[in-house]
Structure formats: structure tokens, C-alpha cells
Design a protein around this nucleic acid. Structure first.
Lengths: 168, 168
DNA sequence: CTTGGAAAGTCAATAAAGCTGACGTATTGT
DNA sequence: ACAATACGTCAGCTTTATTGACTTTCCAAG
């Protein structure tokens, strides 16, 4: 592409050519499609969308989280989240309970049925992730995570880091 | 989370726990947001969306590609692509020329102005990708690509592989 | 040379998912 | 008492996608 690197440039610098970067960009684009394909199929059957999936995922991850918290993690407006949340509550997948310490807050958690859907969704996604991990091996997985973390916005990384230490 | 792995399990198998997989899933979600953030800002100024970006990217990558080809790469319907393509042609960013061998086909290419926008968009995205690559190092980048490729759908990987050998 | 089908473009209707702005209610904390 | 917070909701809008139906142009096989 355009001006290639001078021939004497070593492998350690060569990996940052525009071509390498373009391939990384396309890999990201195509892989993300694979990443969402399986859950999307399940969601389509129940006529939910990705927005529902995201809400379910993060409620599962942090049971009892508040609406505001979810809002900042998902980076959407209150109105957008509310439309999704309302259908999930109506359908009996999510439960909203008034806060004890602060009664203005609503604590969100999955019902048994909601947890069931979460399982189905994350099983599908985990299967693909597991297969990719197995195919690539532990060293590749470490690199994968390193690059992804470096790619996040500072603010976004904050949400990610917050959960990293929860279990490990 | 739930049932952890037995304590005697070694590091080489331990990396496939549900927790590790969940972190991979979230890393993917958050990183993709970072990945699209910079181009999205530029596109918003010109009131274009991601669909325009994708069309511009792949027309740049494969100048002279046909509408049908683009359709299969992007995985959208003809109508969706056509709306995007029409505005890009009207705005003078993309040129559509009747095929010489088969006059039913239209060959798409970027105009000088279109190439300019492509530059701006991919520069922004490359900058972030470059920074992430630098931070993580060549070994991590190799792993990153390996996992992403393993995560693609078979059909999708086909489109990706088709371009891999074009330059290198 | 006719005809079937492919490539492209278009019209209309619909839906998911986001946005802004404005308001109301309950509750908390100063 | 009063300002601020957390939540919910109403209305209206935009983007991006969908499906279905249809036309024009054109290639190629019978």
C-alpha cells in the first residue's frame, strides 16, 4: 500500500505497516460479526435485539445493579434503556425492586426465566469463544486480550477493569 | 462463578473457564466500541453512518468491485446498500461505471473526494489500532489476529482470507 | 431469436434502536 | 424548605436495517 517500509526494516517494526493495520481492522469487523451471530439468531426467535442482550448480560454480571449504573456501562440514554428494560420486565425476565438504602433506586436482577435466556445466549457466545480460544491456544489468547484492552477508550476500560478483579 | 475448575487443573486448561470466556466476551464488546468511536465522530459531522464507512472501506480496498460483490461482503440487503450507495454517489464520493465485459454490472470506485474521506476515516482507526499494537507488542498482535480469525463464521472468513494475500 | 434468469435500481411499508427535549414523581440531603 | 438525584414516560425524530414487489437492462442457453 502506498509507501512500503524500507527493506532494511526488521520484523519488529514491520508489523506496524498500514497493510498489517488494515488487516487488523478487517479482522475486527468480520470477527465481531461472528461474535454476535449466534446470540442474534436466538434473540430473533424471541423478537428481541442486541440491546436486550446487552441489558441481560450486564444485569447477570452485576445482579442488583441500578438503572443509572447500567446506563453508564451501556453508554445509551435513559429513554433507550427504558424501552428495553420495560419489555424485559413485562415479559418476566427481569425484576426491578425498590432500593432499601435509597428508595429512589431500582435494583435490577434476572428472574429464573431471565437467567435461562442469559444462559442460552452466553452459552452460544461462549461456545464460539471457546472454540476460537482452543484453536488459537493460551499464548494467542493472552495477546488477544492485551490488544483488545489497549483498544478501549479510557472511560470504557474503566467499566471493563471494574469487573476484571471480581473473580480472578 | 458457579462451579470452578478442580484445583489440580493446570494453567493450560484453566484459561478456558467460564470466567475467562466472559472476560473475553466483554473485552470484545468494549473494544469494538473503542474501535468504531473515532470514525463515528468523523462520520457524524458529515451526517453519514457506519454503513457509509463500511461501503467506503471496501470500495477502497477493492476498486472496481461490483454491487453484488459488495453485497455479499457486507452481508446486507440490496435495498440497504443501495440507499447508502446512492447518497455517496450523489455526494460525489463514489463513482459507478457500467461494466465493459458485462454491461449489467456497475463497477464502484472512490472519487478523489471519496478517497479523502476514506483516508480521514482509516487514519483515525489506524491510529488507535497502531497505538494498541504498539502497547501490546508483536507477539500479542499475532495472537490477537489468530483468535479473531478463529472467531469468524466460515463464510465470513472466506471474504477475509480472499484479501489477505492481495498484498503480502 | 426467443426466453429465462441475473445484475442493478427503485418503491413502499415496517421495525429496531438509538437520539433530544420536556415533564412528573418520589426521595434524599443540605 | 428547597435543590438535586433516580427513575419513568410522552412525543417526535433519525439511521439502519428488514421484506416484498416491480422494472430495466442485459447475457446466455435452448
Amino acid at each position: 500500500m502506498g509507501d512500503g517500509p524500507p527493506p532494511q526494516m526488521g520484523q519488529s517494526l514491520l508489523f506496524l505497516t498500514d497493510e498489517q493495520l488494515r488487516k487488523g481492522i478487517e479482522a475486527m469487523f468480520f470477527a465481531y460479526r461472528g461474535f454476535t451471530a449466534d446470540p442474534d439468531r436466538i434473540l430473533a426467535e424471541k423478537s428481541y435485539g442486541r440491546a436486550h442482550h446487552r441489558a441481560i448480560h450486564f444485569i447477570h454480571r452485576s445482579p442488583g445493579t441500578t438503572v443509572n449504573n447500567l446506563l453508564s456501562i451501556l453508554g445509551v440514554t435513559k429513554q433507550s434503556l427504558n424501552r428495553v428494560l420495560r419489555t424485559l420486565i413485562e415479559d418476566g425476565l427481569v425484576e426491578s425492586t425498590v432500593g432499601t438504602r435509597d428508595k429512589r433506586e431500582r435494583h435490577l436482577q434476572l428472574t429464573a426465566e431471565g437467567a435461562g435466556l442469559e444462559r442460552a445466549l452466553s452459552d452460544a457466545q461462549r461456545d464460539r469463544m471457546r472454540a476460537a480460544y482452543r484453536a488459537a491456544g493460551p499464548a494467542a489468547v493472552a495477546g488477544f486480550r492485551q490488544v483488545l484492552e489497549a483498544m478501549m477508550d479510557d472511560e470504557t476500560r474503566h467499566h471493563y477493569e471494574a469487573m476484571k478483579e471480581k473473580v480472578e
